[in-house]
Design a protein around this nucleic acid. Structure first.
Lengths: 110, 110
DNA sequence: AAATTATACCTAATTTAATTAGGTGTATAA
DNA sequence: TTATACACCTAATTAAATTAGGTATAATTT
């Protein structure tokens, strides 16, 4: 992902939010899109990405369609019905998490 | 820390920020203070806390003073000069991290 | 034409940072 | 007197990344 370890544990909700907003995407596309929208700040490594996509598919949160583009393989992922439900939960948790970090960063009184 | 894994990698900057703002604290006190200011949202486990304090001390970012309160032991930690410098860096990284998460959560266009 | 870079997938070994589940012992409250 | 709070600690395990490879095609650069 990125030199710091802060993003550890965040990749799953980030990918789900990405798929929620963008719809159907393939793995490589996700890495490029995230790099683009975060202005290079967030670099998703493929070693983290692909195993996670496989896990989310196995858990029934993602479904996959394989396509041949020219002679190249692409595996398009999209959220299942349950995946969408879980994304809502994950985003809610992310927001709570960020609120808590805000409290730590900007404490009124300690 | 907390049921979700979102906080993974955040404990170190959180503790350093806490010591920066509050000054000298002992371990148990840190767990209680964080629980209090985050309204119970963030629970630092002792299994994560103590090894981290020892590591930061070994790295020269924290210094420790042991005191006897009644018959009980307390180990007060505070930031060293270098620890304060590193805290500034860590907080800056935390803010960048949060900005990036904001971009993911509230994308203008994807 | 050849070499490099970009696209597109993948995995195994290792590292890091937590959780879980214990342990020691004192002081206070039910 | 029994449980809870205080206050420290560690070892084993788990989770989630990084690092460092691998395969192969397409496009670009030298």
């Amino acid at each position: 992902m990125n030199k710091s370890s802060l993003y550890k544990g965040c990749l799953e909700p980030i990918l789900m939010q990405l798929l929620q907003k963008h719809g159907r995407m393939y793995g490589y596309e996700m890495t490029q899109k995230v790099k683009e929208i975060t202005k290079g700040e967030l670099h998703i490594t493929e070693g983290a990405l692909y195993p996670l996509l496989h896990r989310l598919e196995a858990e029934g949160l993602l479904e996959v369609e394989t396509e041949n583009i020219g002679n190249r393989l692409r595996k398009y992922y999209s959220l299942t019905k349950n995946g969408k439900k879980q994304t809502t939960v994950a985003i809610e948790e992310m927001k709570n998490f960020m609120t808590t970090l805000q409290i730590i960063l900007h404490p009124k009184t300690i």
